[in-house]
Amino acid sequence: MTQLSEQPPANARRWWQQTMRLALLTLAALAVFAFAVHAFVGALDTLVFFGFPLGYYMAAQGSVIAFVVLVFWFVAWQERIDRKAGVAEPSPRDPEGSL
């Protein structure tokens, strides 16, 4: 543990703020699809989507698909933030850093 910096420089602080903002945004989206959408199940069920009542569909598939998209989006965005701030790791197996 030789290279531990005790006070973050301005650059690092900006990177951490971006990371925090992304985390909050992702968690907010998670809350929408895990909780908020299903509070309106009654209203959504009056709509039909591919033969499914929409409220049921959102709980059985829609939210899950949203989580998958959300987590891949989060990973890509966080990697961009890390790369721009110069804190990403070099990786011998995957130098491009693409998904």
Binding site: L27, L30, S63, F67, F74
Partner: peptide, 12 residues
């Protein structure tokens, strides 16, 4: 919903 959404928390 619960058992899939949890992984978003793990990642973030």
């Amino acid at each position: 919903i619960g058992w899939t959404g949890g992984f978003v928390l793990v990642a973030v």
